[in-house]
Design a protein around this nucleic acid. Sequence first.
DNA 1: GAAAGTCGTTACCAAATGGAAACCACCCCT
DNA 2: AGGGGTGGTTTCCATTTGGTAACGACTTTC
Lengths: 113, 113
Amino acid sequence: METTPETSLREDASVEVALPCAADTLLRKLWGQWKTHVIYVLGERHACRFGVLRRTITGISPKVLTQRLRELEADGLVWREQENTIPPKVTYGLTQTGLAVHAVLKDIEKIEV
Amino acid sequence: METTPETSLREDASVEVALPCAADTLLRKLWGQWKTHVIYVLGERHACRFGVLRRTITGISPKVLTQRLRELEADGLVWREQENTIPPKVTYGLTQTGLAVHAVLKDIEKIEV
DNA sequence: GAAAGTCGTTACCAAATGGAAACCACCCCT
DNA sequence: AGGGGTGGTTTCCATTTGGTAACGACTTTC
């Protein structure tokens, strides 16, 4: 396909151009079970240790909590700080972006159906 | 386990009470591939027929689009109007709640990482 | 009379997701 | 020396999800 001459351009084609949702990229980072809860708790408490998170988010298993925290950290919403004492203390909190997301969560609460 | 006497109530237990994220309920309705895109397009265009949605959201299959629309309709974010002409014309649009979600999507766009 | 467009539905299949249970090293307390 | 708390990891399994391809009825256009 060279030069693609656009032989018959439909009249309404300009109206049907792809219209991607930019928010999707960020929203995808909040998919998956428990993720909003983690953000929410961290936002309300400012910072938390692993055990507190685990007990505050009732029903979550340690494996999934670790997994979610790693994902959120990789996505730049959560920071992680480890003190190499024994036993180690690991603290989590929200980054700048994470705080912005937390603010949006508070807004969304007001909608509800 | 009768009466569960709460023998030893930990001092800091009040701090670790469950802290559910209320926004989670609504946000769950936006999980799943393509859902934000559907809301977004309907919000930008105010109303759309099936075929337009399908061509505007590049890559979506008719099965998945139908599925998403049904879910969004059941969740009260989208309305559906069918004219029983032949071929039938089916038009979709956002409900009041759907419009609120669309507004949130526009807010989230501004965050990005 | 064959093709294309309307708006879907119905298999069928592969991949991703979520959860329960067991385990780890190390320390403190009794 | 045994139990509990620290912050995880690992294994295994069932469910959920997304996608492709084919088909449906009916009309208009070539």
